[in-house]
Write a protein that binds this DNA or RNA. Structure first.
Length: 132
RNA sequence: GCGGAAGGCUGGACGGCCGCACCUGCAAGGGUGAGGAAAGUCCGGACUCAGCAAAGCAUCGGUGCCGGGUAACGCCCGGGCAGGGCAACCUGACGGAAAGCGCCACAGAAAACAAACCGCCCGCCAUGCCUGAGGUUCGCCAAGGGAUCACAUGGUGCGGUAAGGGUGAAACGGUGGGGUAAGAGCCCACCGGGGGGCUGGCAACAGUCCCCGCAUGGCAAGCCCCACCAAGGAGCAAUGCCAAAUAGGAACCUCGCGUUCGUCUGAUCCCCUUCGGGGGAUAUCGGGGCAGGGCAGCUUUGGCCUGAGAGGUUCGGGUUGGCAGCAAGAGCCAUGUGGCAACGCAUGGCCCAGAUGAAUGGUCGUCGAUCCUUAGGGCAACCGAAGGGGGACAAAAUCCGGCUUAUAGGCCUUCCGCGCGC
RNA sequence: CGGGGCGUGGCGCAGCUUGGUAGCGCGUCUGUUUUGGGUACAGAAGGUCGUGAGUUCGAAUCUCGCCGCCCCGA
């Protein structure tokens, strides 16, 4: 039933669009804790953390999203997370690098209300700084 | 028209581009995708687990006017009573205070078996009034005796009374009259209260008649009593399976380790044998029965398990993967029908989220209830080109029925009061 | 999902059981002592008792609903 190689196939499922790197989602708490200790870059509407993984840990580029209780109630947190996910989807395939874990952290009020195009530019700028 | 009451509905719309989750399909593609509260997690269930059910008792808990609805409820509907409102209507933890215990600060005479501080009244005594031994500072003082209807002052009585008394949340029925030494349900009228009967109602209760002068404050959201109800525990991180990994665990506590069957004859031993088998012995091994033990606190009954082990508590190690549970249900929508209603019944139709760092969206444009600014118009209320802003609360997490709380704006229905017109 | 606890002056806590006066320590302020400071002594200020209702004559205390925080178990 649960074939182990099925997960391998899922990891390679981004293959049809060869130009884009596959985007896996961080799910484990330990990955988030590791990323929190790595480099970070503040932006007006959110905070970016980036960590270059050790070899053999995982494949491709991974990204996670964090919105704590400070952001607001469940509705506000979900909306903030969706906007972060959207800018990550638009920006990371172009600007991200293989072998990195990224974590985007939402801020109260601003993540939900800040201008969308500005947030994309902010993320691109922050990624440049983090890769340098 | 203004003000108000009750109930219900709705919870931005359309399009472009780019996306997400699930289902279906070989594929292309197609289909579906948050709420009235999904929330808080306050009640009630379904479902699941453990080696169990029934009855009674105990205990704990809940409910608390009556009747009905429901799978059930602390929910809903209808009715009664009480309080509020001119009314529509609203609100109500609404059993018992003569079963018992407890509490009622301060103030006040007294705060719960009533008692009696002031007061009022009555009886008695003394004084006053007359006389006056005697004394004298000549103003008076005064033993004793007499009078004592009434009045006054003081004292006194195991006297009467509770009308009145600052207080207090609350003062032992209220108001008025009679009555009395003063007073008092002492008597009378009305109001209030208690008991009993009758009538209406399933009942709560209401009405009415008779009797009783009245017989005992409040708090039960203090303990408690009564009635009714259900019944324990844990909860979808329940539970089952697969895979992986580690271990093939440790400590402690409680109870128990008895008996029987050799026609269970498997095993072992002895004897006979025609070699098919037969007879006997052994409770050591296996097996069966019984006692015993266990199965939610106790008892009883039945059942099941165990029967030489069983049960419980704690600690330690590993895994934080997948599948099932997990979406057809106390389901939704019509129509008919019973019922004042909640709701029930019948027939037909429909299939309507299933995620798990957690999908159901991101962005842009047009419109948009409505708000703001302003050119202009109008005596004014106001109208208004153009520009700008622009939707509340709040997101399923096993699933239902309720409750509670949050909620911008809009719409509909019914009713009440006041004003005006016809 | 289930269970438990706590909100009282600036801080840490009593008081709640059995309802009537909100108290203690530290801190703050003022004064005295000292040449000055500290210490010591004396005095003072400061509390919607988390919040909204209800019960009661009366609620920090009793009951119910909300809000916030903390802890525990599966």
């Amino acid at each position: 039933m649960t074939e182990p190689d099925e997960q391998d196939q899922k990891a390679a499922s981004g293959e049809p669009r060869a130009a884009l790197l596959p985007l896996a989602v961080l799910r484990k708490r330990s990955d988030f804790l590791k990323a929190a200790r790595a480099r970070r870059a503040p932006c007006p509407a959110f905070l970016v953390q980036a960590r270059k993984r050790a070899d053999g840990e995982a494949m491709g580029m991974r990204v996670g999203f964090t919105c704590s209780k400070k952001v607001g109630n469940a509705v506000a947190r979900n909306r903030a997370k969706r906007r972060l996910r959207e800018i990550a989807r638009l920006v990371l395939p172009r600007m991200g690098q293989d072998g990195y874990d990224y974590v985007l952290i939402g801020r109260a009020e601003k993540t939900a209300s800040h201008e969308f195009t500005a947030m994309q530019a902010d993320l691109a700028h922050a990624l440049k700084k983090l890769h340098a």
